[in-house]
Design a binder for these strands. Structure first.
Lengths: 101, 101
DNA sequence: CGTGTAAGGAATTCTGACACG
DNA sequence: CGTGTAAGGAATTCTGACACG
């Protein structure tokens, strides 16, 4: 589930380089609850490769005029759907397991 | 051949956090030709996940008392072997291809 | 709402050097 | 040879705020 892509190790300057987004925007999307970087002991933000992909998706949506709040809703829906699907699968596996007992 | 693990995006402070090596050591191993970080436009070093693995290997060797020069030789030998092997494989593939022509 | 920018401080990184062993 | 450390400067990052639309 968690791979190297989810390790939070990239500082905001590099994220800026990679995405082309201003640091202001990157911090703002965090403020609006769209991205969740880790922090070093002294507060420097650390992002993962997945975060960078996410930021680029956000940038695309923003270009289409989608507001941060809606983007957030979409992201949450996507997450909920995935969780629901995973739970269904788990349920099916358990059912199979119980039948064979 | 090159994956996400080879993207040079991690600053030296984070590398220090992840490996436990002092920044002095990390820079010294570069000076000795063991690691090759990229640089940002203004000179800040950037390392990859592969570099971090390599640094941990180096750290182990150093604990065993192996000198940086020998470590470098070992690394070069390993690289040469891999290149040789790859060339053999390519040669075999070409041979097969030519037979069928 | 989403972004830019100037502000001031704190933490980071860099290089070249001296020290010790 | 391999590392630590103090030195000084340059670049980075952070937060809170004001501006504009």
């Amino acid at each position: 589930m968690t791979s190297i892509k989810d390790k939070k190790v990239i500082t905001i300057g590099i994220v800026h380089e990679m995405t082309g987004l201003s640091e202001r925007k990157i911090r703002y999307y965090e403020e609006r609850g769209l991205v969740f970087p880790d922090r070093t002991p002294r507060g420097t933000r650390k992002y993962s490769f997945s975060d960078i992909e996410l930021l680029m998706e956000i940038a695309n949506k923003r270009e289409e005029g989608v507001q941060t709040y809606e983007i957030k809703q979409d992201l949450n829906n996507k997450k909920k759907k995935e969780e629901y699907r995973d739970e269904m699968i788990r349920g099916q596996l358990n059912a199979q397991f119980n039948i064979r007992k």
